[in-house]
Structures are given as structure tokens and as C-alpha cells.
Design a protein around this nucleic acid. Structure first.
Length: 401
DNA sequence: TTTAACCGCGTATACGTAAT
DNA sequence: ATTACGTATACGCGGTTAAA
């Protein structure tokens, strides 16, 4: 497959049209870009690295639409972002049947009218590292990256015979399918896990054997706030005790258990900053700031000190299994108890007074184990999913070597 | 190309109140 | 009276988009 029986040709030589949007005097002003209207007016958010995203769509009126010239997106057009976020691609297949769709000034339309090129193949080629690297080279601008139509026309593409294109597409569809199936599987497992817990907690309604009691969080665990961050104190990078800040929840590998932190302390340091030490298996969550609305949770993988913008819940072992507590906390949408001021804030008292469903300890253990198994399964699937994406890229790159 | 505005997310700190 | 603690809020920062 990798013997170069095909030559490299530029987009313009291949008779592939590059269509810029209308940037004339009639270009919509910001107050003419509306929530509803006749014609979809694409913005950079609609073109992700994975194709179209139609969750937040802006429109222009029919009148405005008729005044504009170039830039109407047709079926099978490929849209490429050229300013700001450069190089994102999306293939337009009009499933949603809008009246009209237009690009804004930070994108171009790539229209294939060459009968010797399968548009889907073109789309895959444009998404390959072979082309991405060329785009990287032609992009310029310090504050704001951009690429020009002239340079885009000179992008070189490896286009083999139609048969070879079909062969490649068959192979890549196979991988696309595998990736998509795994994505669906992960979504399904997440859903099934949620349903399992929901089903169990509702079972006492039907006079089932498992008895769930309603208890306040403060009856089953201790809720604490972390220690103030001392600006003029030198935190270590690699000391015995982790010092956890909100951002550490975002480090890859910390999805469930907090394994890595940017800062740490030794025992002496903890005294100096008056740090509160929390036990292993305590559960942390953001208390202040936008992240408080994202319902992130983490489990301490070891004794740790945490920042004062985090809350820490330590299960009372006689009352509550900490894994069970973690799973219950995951289901609570704390954005509901967040105060509605400028900055979101979860206050300790309100959190402590949240009611949860909780059975006897031995039942908690069982439920926790089931849900933990789900977590492990899901984590495993995510690993494979990431591997599949990597493999798919490798194979696609290999083809264009 | 530069500058400004904006947004999402996270951090630092002022200040009232409870604890000692 | 003084310190420790918890809450409320002002601010910082990096990235993206719009305007000049």
C-alpha cells in the first residue's frame, strides 16, 4: 500500500475549489448574528477537530442571507477553519436540513468536483498528519494564527487511483467503526452504572428487601475545608505529602484517585502552614469557582493536605463505606446548591445537610464493589478506545508516507 | 497584524464570626 | 483580646474571537 505509485499534486492542480466567505460591506455585524433565523452562520465553535458540532448554532435573517454572495455550504462540502483555530475540518452532510448554511470570515469551503477523487477520501487525506504538517508550516501570525487561500491552494495531496482510494476507505471505515463502537460502549456502561445505582436506591419503594435510610451527609462523614495556600511559602515538588489544588483534578491519571500533584510538603512544612492532614480514601471536590459546577470528585490515594478551595469528606467507617460515599457523591449535582452570585460556591453547611440514601454497611460494601467494578471496566475501555484512535492515526499516516 | 473584549476556569485574600 | 476558621468576592490567567 505504501509504494508511491501515485504522485503529489496541489489542490489547485487537482481542480478542487477553495471558496472564501463573503467579506464585503454586507458581512453581518455582531448584532445581526442571531439565536434564530433563516440561514445558519457557522462560527469556529461549530468546527471541532472531530467535525461539525451543532450544539450552539447562530443564524442570520433571510434578508441578510440574500444580500451576501459567496460562502454558501452545499452538501459534501468540506469546511476548513483558517483563523484563530486553524486547520479544523468538517464534512457537511445535510442531515439536519437547514434552509441554508454559510461560513463566516474565519473559514473556507473546499469543494471537490473532480470525478477522480472521492470526497470522503479527500476529507480523510486533509485530516491526515501529512496535510496537518503542511498547514502548520503555512500558518502565520503571533497573536492569532491564520492561513491564506493562496497557500491552501498549494497544499500537496497524495491522490492514488479510485480503486486505491476505495481500498483505503474500506480499511479506515473499519477503524472508524471500531472507534465508534467503543465510544458507544463506554457511554452505555456509564449509563448502565447510573441506572444500577438508581434502581437499587429505589428498590425500597417497592418494599424490597434492601432497606435504604435517608441520612444527612454529616451523619455519615466529616466535611472539612482545606488549608489556605501560603503565597510566600516554598512548596516542594517532590515531598512526602501531596498538596492538592483544584487544578490537580484535571491531571491525566487523576480521574478517580489523586495520584499526582504539582505541589507537595514534608511533615515539618505542614506545621509551618498549619496544614490539615486528611486520611487516605477521603473524597475531595471543588468548593469555589466555576469548577464547583462541574461535579468533579476525587479520592485521596494517600494522606494529603488540600487547598482551601476544595472540600474534603471523610467517611465515618462505622457508618459509611468510602467507596459508596464516592459513588453517591458522583450522582449529586452540587450546582443546585451553589450560590447564585458572581462566583459559584458550595458552602460546607449546605453540603453537610444534603440527604442521601444509605443502606446497612454490608450492603454498602456490596453496592460499592459492583460500582467499582464498573469504574474499572470503563477505565479499561477508555484505555482501549484511546489506543484504537492512536492505531487508526498510525494506519492512516502509513498510507500517505 | 495588533489590540481589545470576552469567556471559562481557577486562585488569592479581605473580612466577619467562632474558638480559645 | 487575639487567633483560627469559613465564607464571600475580587482578581488572574490563558485561550479564543471580534474589532481596529
Amino acid at each position: 500500500m505504501t509504494n508511491q505509485t501515485y504522485s503529489l499534486k496541489s489542490l489547485s492542480d487537482l481542480d478542487i475549489k477553495i471558496i472564501d466567505g463573503d467579506r464585503g460591506a454586507e458581512y453581518p455585524k455582531s448584532n445581526e448574528i442571531l439565536k434564530n433565523g433563516y440561514c445558519v452562520f457557522l462560527n469556529a465553535k461549530n468546527i471541532s477537530s472531530e467535525g461539525f458540532v451543532f450544539s450552539d448554532i447562530k443564524f442570520i435573517t433571510f434578508e441578510k442571507h440574500t444580500k451576501l454572495l459567496k460562502g454558501i455550504v452545499k452538501n459534501n462540502d468540506i469546511v476548513l477553519t483558517t483563523r484563530g483555530t486553524v486547520g479544523n475540518l468538517a464534512l457537511f452532510v445535510d442531515k439536519l436540513s437547514y434552509d441554508a448554511v454559510r461560513i463566516n470570515s474565519s473559514m473556507v469551503i473546499i469543494r471537490n468536483e473532480n470525478p477522480n477523487i472521492i470526497t470522503d477520501f479527500l476529507y480523510k487525506v486533509l485530516n491526515s498528519d501529512f496535510v496537518k504538517n503542511q498547514i502548520k508550516k503555512i500558518s502565520y501570525g503571533s497573536a492569532q494564527n491564520q492561513i491564506t487561500v493562496k497557500d491552501i491552494k498549494n497544499i500537496m495531496l497524495p491522490i492514488p487511483t479510485l480503486d486505491k482510494q476505495k481500498e483505503f476507505l474500506e480499511l479506515i471505515y473499519l477503524w472508524d467503526n471500531a472507534v465508534n463502537q467503543y465510544k458507544k460502549l463506554i457511554e452505555y456502561l456509564n449509563k448502565y452504572k447510573r441506572m444500577t445505582l438508581q434502581h437499587l436506591t429505589e428498590s425500597n419503594v417497592d418494599n424490597n428487601k434492601i432497606i435504604f435510610k435517608q441520612k444527612l451527609l454529616e451523619e455519615v462523614c466529616i466535611v472539612n475545608i482545606g488549608t489556605k495556600f501560603e503565597g510566600n511559602f516554598k512548596y516542594k515538588v517532590k515531598a512526602e505529602i501531596p498538596f492538592i489544588k483544584i487544578n490537580d483534578l484535571n491531571i491525566p491519571g487523576n480521574e478517580k484517585y489523586i495520584i499526582k500533584t504539582k505541589l507537595s510538603l514534608n511533615r515539618k512544612d505542614i506545621k509551618k502552614i498549619n496544614g490539615k492532614l486528611f486520611y487516605k480514601n477521603s473524597i475531595i471536590l471543588p468548593k469555589v469557582g466555576a469548577s464547583a459546577l462541574l461535579n468533579k470528585r476525587g479520592i485521596l490515594s494517600r494522606e494529603s493536605v488540600i487547598d482551601n478551595n476544595l472540600l474534603c469528606l471523610t467517611a465515618n467507617e462505622k457508618e459509611c463505606n468510602s467507596e459508596y460515599l464516592y459513588q453517591i457523591l458522583l450522582t449529586l449535582d452540587l450546582s443546585k446548591i451553589s450560590q447564585e452570585s458572581a462566583i459559584p460556591l458550595i458552602n460546607k453547611r449546605e453540603l453537610s445537610n444534603i440527604r442521601i440514601f444509605i443502606p446497612e454497611l454490608d450492603v454498602q460494601n456490596k453496592i460499592a464493589n459492583i460500582l467499582k467494578k464498573y469504574d474499572e471496566l470503563i477505565e479499561n475501555k477508555i484505555k482501549i478506545y484511546k489506543l484504537l484512535i492512536k492505531q487508526r492515526l498510525l494506519i492512516s499516516n502509513k498510507f500517505f508516507l
